[in-house]
Write a protein that binds this DNA or RNA. Structure first.
Lengths: 196, 196, 196, 196
DNA sequence: AATGAATGAGTGTTCATTCAT
DNA sequence: TATGAATGAACACTCATTCAT
């Protein structure tokens, strides 16, 4: 019978530890921000000895950079995924409204996004990351809207998500939808398809 | 002959010191972020002894809150001001485009804005501040656009400013203008006025 | 009509302020100990501006010394007083038992006494104070018991008071009495009087 | 030839460091009192970097508590030891007189005892420690005197030790002895043994 | 006489990082 | 390879004391 997992495993070989530490770092970023992350908090969160964190990552900045990289990777894939089922303009609108109104489930993602943006403001390496991320996101959107609309849509979404994060009175779904529909511009064709 | 400014004046009486410390705190916030602010950096920036900062502000959190409050105050006034000369739709568009494209002169403002937003995410007192600020900004916009458009315009501007801050290839002015014009929606009247 | 006393009176002339500050200092000593006393706590307790405390007392050590002096003065008088009504051996025993079992009303006194003793261990000025105090106390006791008994009685009382302060299970009154009676030694005469 | 002790050894491995820090803390308590102890003083006394003290003890209060616990442990053993050679009533008296008159060699012990008592007044954890200590001491005494006499003897000893610590004119040994003999009460048997 | 402002020294504590094992 | 011990730098904050007014 399997032994119950003890709170501090002494496993000498733990190939996924790096990943677990990175996820723990993201958890800490969500709750305490880039301002509040420390080796110790990450180690505690990952249930790993302190030395293990400094062993696997050259510095806290390095850990942060790799954690953010992991986040962007995951989020890009997730974002991509969101659009696989989009076939009509209405599908697109619905997906984007969900993105903004996402509720607590997407709060984590959103917070990390803004943490990354702010950190990137003063860290060139992270700036590269945000630029690639922005480029990729817009590319996904552009498949449905063309590049110009994609850019403004992206900005609008970002602003709306930030506001959603901070407000106590969430915007009605209908208003979010209207804003998105307007940003998408007039439907190009007569039908409901995306007209590409 | 002017006295040479000594590196540490022994000025015992300095009634505007509080304000100077707050401005120094904002300077530090711009360069190092809320993550990097310390009493010592603020004191050095304000050319004031360390004890002076802790004397005037009960805690670093208190100092931060008051600095952000000062920033919002200034920025609200400045924002209000921007629109005194706006009479036509084109005026409005031009002012908003400037807001986004503002260049280095507005970088400080923008950075502080995002620092505040992020800090507010985990600090209820600051959240009150951002909420009031958002409300006030939208109210100003709403005078020209009505409340609904004001909301989406505000989000769009925020997103565009964030992107402008992070990109190395600034968006052409024309694209920014197009996005804003679209967000404003179709001109209500036939003329160039704001149609209110 | 009399103005309601505001929490911080701006009375320029306040001849009893020194005394009030000393009493406040004793209050702080009771609650925080000699380890925890500060100008600020005393000022707050006395409802007096910080500058007033440093104005009236040359240093914190000075304030402490004068506060303890005031305490000894009061306590000596009080102690003396206790014995004015003592005429018989039984009276004496009863008064001493009360001294030990005194309950919360005497806790303040007892705590201050031990604070003083400990402070005196490292401060020669305070040591003079404790020596005089001890001498006076013993002199009062000696009027009833002779000097030798007075000394051991004093020590016994001190020890019992300290234990009473620290225990959660107070000693029965009867046991305290028995210890005191034993320390007093066999009644010198046949009667109930003190036999002097 | 012995190596000269360098002021700061770079000893990375030092398994008894915790104990040495605790002993250093007791030294500081003796010289400066609970009021005067600081991490830095302890570190200097133990010849250990500041960070080492905070590394081994979660807080200054923790350090204090453990130092006092160590003291009580040592003192209890020592006290117990004192009585192994006691067989007659005279032996007992002699040991107790030594305890009070102990001279400088016992000054350290006595000071720490009073520091602990005073600290316990405001710290429930330390109060537990003093209660256990008192109980143990009395139990040792009670083996020779019975519980009731043990209690009053304990109080008397405490009071006499405090006075011995503070006086400049030490009490003659004979007087101390008389007080103890009286507290022990009349010898129970005819002989010199303890009559248990 | 009295006090608010000011400041330098020092406090407990946290932490990134190093290193011996 | 992994980690507990260790440490120096820095931090937020407190405070006795000074001084201009």
């Amino acid at each position: 019978m399997a032994k119950v997992e003890s709170p501090r495993r002494a496993r000498r070989h733990d190939p996924e530890r790096r990943q677990r530490v990175l996820d723990a770092a993201l958890d800490v970023l969500v709750s305490d921000g880039a301002a509040g992350i420390t080796h110790r908090k990450v180690a505690a969160r990952a249930d790993v000895p302190l030395g293990s964190v400094t062993y696997h990552f050259a510095s806290l900045a390095d850990l942060l950079a790799r954690a953010f990289a992991r986040y962007v990777e995951q989020r890009t894939a997730e974002f991509e995924n969101l659009f696989t089922a989009v076939h009509t303009r209405d599908d697109l609108v619905e997906v984007l409204v969900d993105l903004v109104q996402g509720g607590p489930s997407r709060r984590r993602s959103a917070v990390l996004g803004f943490e990354l943006h702010l950190a990137a403001l003063r860290n060139p390496d992270l700036r590269k990351l945000t630029q690639q991320w922005t480029k990729d996101s817009r590319a996904v959107l552009a498949r449905f809207t063309g590049p110009e609309i994609a850019g403004r849509l992206d900005a609008l979404l970002e602003g709306m998500i930030m506001h959603a994060l901070l407000t106590t009175e969430p915007e009605p779904r209908e208003m979010t939808r209207a804003a998105i529909v307007q940003a998408l511009g007039p439907a190009s064709g007569s039908g409901n398809d995306l007209g590409q």
